[in-house]
Design a binder for these strands. Structure first.
Lengths: 364, 364
DNA sequence: CTGAAAGCGCTTACAG
DNA sequence: CTGAAAGCGCTTACAG
C-alpha cells in the first residue's frame, strides 16, 4: 500500500534509479522517503532538525538515511536556501613569492580558521591571490561564499580602494591586519603596537641602547608600521630616539631578512640589538649576523615577531611576540558570521604576549 | 516590443526584482536575457562558450553581463550539471598536533595544489582532519567535491582500510605518500628511496661511518620507511650495515626531533652523522646537538629531508632533499581530474634532488 | 504533525 | 543559430 501511495518514488525505482543509487552512491531524499514510508517533505524537515517532526518518524527517516548512506545535496540545498554555507579565504601573496615562501604564521592562521569554520558548520574555500588581481568580485558574487576572510601581506595602500569597493557592493568580509581608524570594513588584528613596545622595552632592559629595526615602517605596511611605532614609543620613554639609519626595509621572508641585515652591517657598526618585524626576517638576520662573525646575543641581541614554531628551535632560540592564532581564527570567523547574519560587529584588537628566549638575553 | 516578447522577465522586473538586483547584487540569467534582448537559454549558452551562439549575440550578452556585474550561480549550475566544480583537500594531522605544528612542507603543497586547481578552473575545499574521524564519507557523497586529495601524516596502516572503503564506494581520490605495490587507489609521491640513498651516500662520501637515522622506520610510516630503506641500501653498498641502535623513532616536528636526538645522545656516543627523516626533525636535532656541546658539522654531520624554506637559513644551513612541490601539486590535481573524467591514471613517483649545504660538509 | 506543490537559478535536449 | 520547456535535488510556505 505504501508503494501505491508514493507513485513518484516508485517511478524512480522502476526506471532503474535504485541501480543508479547503488552505482553512483547518489540516493536522493525521495529514496529516503520511500524507504521510510513518508513524504519527501518530511524527510527534508527531519534532516534539517525541524521541531515539527514526530520523534518516531524522525527515527525511521534516520534509519533509511543510514542504510543508503544518504547525504543532503549541498548544491540543491544551498540553491534553495539562497545561502552557500561556505566562507572564502583569500590569501594574498607578494607577486614575487613562490610556493615555499608563504609565512608559516599564515599557515597557522589557516589551520585555526579552518577549524573555526567547521565548528560553525561552514566550509572553507581557499584561494591564493596576487594583490593585483581582480579578486574583489570573485567569490561572494558567484554565490560560492557567504563572506570572505582576507589574509595576507603586500602593500596596504594598493589594496585599500579594493576594500572600499567591497564595502560599496555590500560584500561581507573581515580582514586580518592592523586595526586603524578610518579603515573600510571590519579588521581583526593583534596588538602590533604593544608587541613592538614590549620587545623594545625588553631589549632596553637588557642594556641595549642602539636597537635597529628590520622591516618596512610606512603606511604601506601598517602592521609592521605599528610594531615600529611601538618600538619608537618605548625608546622615547627611555629618552632615546628611533634613528632612521637604524631602520631597514624588509618583507617577511628569511631572504629579505638576510639582505636587510647584511646591508645594515655594511652601513652601521655600533648597533647592539636588532628587532626584526617578523620571525622569518629574524631568522634570516640571525644567519647574516653569524656569517659576519657577530654572535647572538653576546654581540647583538635579536628579537622577532609572530612566534612561529621554528622560533623556539633556532640557535639561539628566538625572543619574539606570540600572536594567538587559534583565537584569531575564531574571532575572524565569528565576526564574519555576524556580518552574514546582519548583526553588529566591531573591529577588534587581540592581545599579544612577549616570549623571552636566548637570542635577547645578553647576560646569560 | 522586446519587452512584450519576454513576459517572464518583465514580470520579474515588475515585482521589484530589479531593486533586489541592485541591493543584493544578485542578477540572474533572466535579467541578462532581458537586457540583451535574447532568451535565457541563449544567455546560458553564450556564457558556457557554446559554439551555437552567434558572435554578435555573444557580444550583446557579454555587455549585459558586464553592466550588471553578473556571475553564474555555481549552486544552480552545479546542481543542474550534476558536478561540483570543486575538489576537496583532506589534510590529516596527528591527533596531538596543534595549529602551529603543521609541517611547512604541507603548506607548500597546499599552495601548489591551490594554484593547480585554479589553473584547471576548479575550486578547492580544505578540511583538516583527525585520522580517527569518519572522513571517508564526508565530501564526495554530499556532492561538495568531485574528488578528494589526501595529504598528511599519521599511521598509514590505521587509515589503509579507509582507503579501501573509498575505493569500494567509488570515490575519486588521489593521495600523496609512498608509492608501493598493492596500495588501494592512486598514489603520488616523491622518490623517498632514492632521496634516502642520496643523503646516506653523500654522508658516506664525507667520511662518515656511523650514521644515525631519526624517524620512524616501519610500515606504519611508509614514506619515512622508504627513506630509511634507501639509507640502508647505501650503507650496504659501502659494505656497512644499518644498526638498530642508531635508529630512533620521531614524528615530523622540531620537538620530536629534539627529543629523539637527546635520547640518541644518551644511548650512543660514537655516531658521526645524523640523517633526519624530515627537515623539522633535523632542526630539532640540530638544537639538541648544540645544547649538548656537539658541533655541526665538525662533530656530527647532519642532513634532513624536504627542503623547507627555513632549511637554508638555520645555522649551519641544512643539507637536505628537495621535493618539487609545484610539480607535485600539479600531478595530484591532474591525476585526480583524470579520475573524475574516467580516464586511465597510474600512480607516479616524482624525482628528488640532493641539496648539499654546510651542515654535512665536514671538511669545510 | 504531515503532504502536495512551488520555486531556487541554472543547463540542455528538443523543436524549430 | 535561437527559444520554450523540463528538470537537477532540495526547502518551505500553504493547507490540512
Amino acid at each position: 500500500m505504501a508503494v501505491l501511495r508514493r507513485q513518484p518514488t516508485a517511478c524512480r525505482l522502476i526506471t532503474g534509479f535504485r541501480i543508479d543509487v547503488r552505482i553512483k552512491g547518489k540516493a536522493t531524499s525521495f529514496d529516503i522517503a520511500y524507504l521510510a514510508g513518508v513524504s519527501q517533505s518530511t524527510v527534508s524537515r527531519a534532516l534539517r532538525g525541524s521541531p515539527l517532526v514526530n520523534e518516531e518518524t524522525r527515527r525511521r527517516v534516520q534509519a533509511a538515511v543510514d542504510q543508503l548512506n544518504y547525504k543532503v545535496d549541498k548544491n540543491a540545498s544551498n540553491l534553495r536556501r539562497m545561502h552557500s554555507g561556505t566562507l572564502a579565504l583569500l590569501l594574498f601573496e607578494d607577486p614575487t613569492a613562490d610556493d615555499s615562501h608563504i609565512n608559516p604564521f599564515f599557515l597557522s592562521m589557516l589551520g585555526s580558521i579552518t577549524r573555526a569554520c567547521s565548528k560553525q558548520g561552514y566550509d572553507l574555500l581557499i584561494s591564493f591571490q596576487q594583490l593585483s588581481h581582480d579578486w574583489h568580485a570573485d567569490f561572494a558574487d558567484s554565490h560560492k561564499a557567504d563572506g570572505i576572510i582576507l589574509l595576507g601581506y603586500g602593500d596596504y595602500l594598493a589594496y585599500c580602494d579594493k576594500l572600499e569597493k567591497l564595502v560599496a557592493q555590500g560584500t561581507r568580509f573581515v580582514r586580518w591586519g592592523a586595526v586603524l581608524p578610518e579603515q573600510p570594513g571590519i579588521s581583526i588584528g593583534c596588538d602590533n603596537f604593544r608587541g613592538g613596545e614590549a620587545i623594545a622595552s625588553h631589549l632596553l632592559e637588557q642594556g641595549c641602547k642602539r636597537i635597529a629595526f628590520l622591516g618596512d615602517a610606512s603606511s604601506h605596511y601598517p602592521e609592521f608600521f605599528e610594531r615600529y611605532r611601538g618600538y619608537a614609543e618605548a625608546l622615547r620613554q627611555a629618552n632615546l630616539q628611533a634613528e632612521p639609519t637604524l631602520q631597514i626595509n624588509a618583507e617577511s621572508t628569511e631572504r629579505s631578512g638576510y639582505e636587510a641585515m647584511t646591508s645594515l652591517i655594511a652601513r652601521v657598526s655600533d648597533f647592539d640589538a636588532v628587532f626584526a618585524a617578523s620571525d622569518l626576517i629574524a631568522i634570516g638576520a640571525m644567519r647574516a649576523l653569524c656569517d659576519h662573525g657577530l654572535r647572538v646575543p653576546q654581540d647583538v641581541a635579536l628579537a622577532g615577531f609572530d612566534d612561529i614554531s621554528t622560533a623556539r628551535f633556532v640557535n639561539p632560540a628566538l625572543t619574539t611576540v606570540l600572536q594567538d592564532t587559534t583565537r584569531a581564527g575564531e574571532v575572524l570567523v565569528e565576526s564574519l558570521l555576524k556580518l552574514v547574519r546582519n548583526e553588529p560587529v566591531e573591529s577588534e584588537i587581540l592581545p599579544v604576549k612577549l616570549v623571552v628566549r636566548g637570542s635577547s638575553q645578553v647576560d646569560v
